Simulated scan of single mutants.
Amino acid sequence: MENNNKSKIGQRFHGKVAIITASTQGIGFGIAQRLGLEGASLVISSRKQKNVDEAAEKLRAQGIEVLAIVCHVSNPQQRKNLIDKTVQRYGKIDVLVSNAATNPTVDNLLQTPDSVLDKQWEINVKASILLLKDAAPHLQKGSSVVIISSIAGFNPPAAMAMYGVTKTALFGLTKALASEMAPNTRVNCVAPGFVPTHFASFLTNNDDTRKELEEKTMLKRLGTTEDMAAATAFLASDDASYITGETLVVAGGMPSRL
Rank of each mutant, 00 (worst) to 15 (best):
N3S: 14
N5Q: 11
K8G: 11
Q11D: 06
F13A: 02
H14M: 11
H14G: 12
H14Q: 15
I20T: 08
Q25N: 13
Q25M: 04
G26C: 09
G26N: 02
G28P: 12
I31F: 07
A32D: 06
G36M: 10
L37I: 14
E38F: 14
E38Q: 15
A40P: 05
L42Q: 04
I44E: 02
S45V: 01
R47S: 13
Q49I: 09
N51A: 07
D53I: 10
E54W: 06
E54I: 07
A56E: 10
E57L: 15
Q62F: 09
V66R: 04
L67R: 11
V70C: 12
S74Y: 11
N75M: 05
Q77H: 13
Q77R: 13
K80S: 15
N81F: 07
N81S: 13
L82E: 07
I83Y: 05
I83P: 08
I83C: 13
K85H: 13
R89F: 08
R89V: 14
Y90F: 15
V95Y: 10
V97D: 00
S98M: 14
A100N: 06
A100E: 02
A101V: 01
T102P: 03
V106L: 05
L109I: 02
Q111H: 13
W121R: 01
E122I: 04
N124F: 02
S128R: 06
L131K: 00
L132F: 05
K133N: 09
A136P: 04
A136N: 06
A136F: 08
P137D: 00
S143K: 03
V146Q: 10
I147S: 08
S150V: 12
F154D: 00
A158Q: 12
A161D: 11
M162L: 14
T168Q: 04
T174M: 07
T174P: 03
E180W: 00
M181S: 05
A182H: 03
A182P: 00
T185K: 05
R186N: 11
R186V: 08
C189M: 04
A191I: 01
A191K: 01
A191T: 02
N205P: 00
D207Q: 15
E214A: 12
T217L: 00
L222A: 04
G223V: 04
G223Y: 11
E226C: 01
A229W: 03
A230M: 09
T232I: 02
F234Y: 12
L235H: 04
A236G: 06
A236C: 06
D239T: 00
D239K: 12
L248T: 03
L248W: 04
V249E: 03
V249H: 09
V249P: 01
V249W: 06
V250I: 10
A251W: 06
R257E: 13
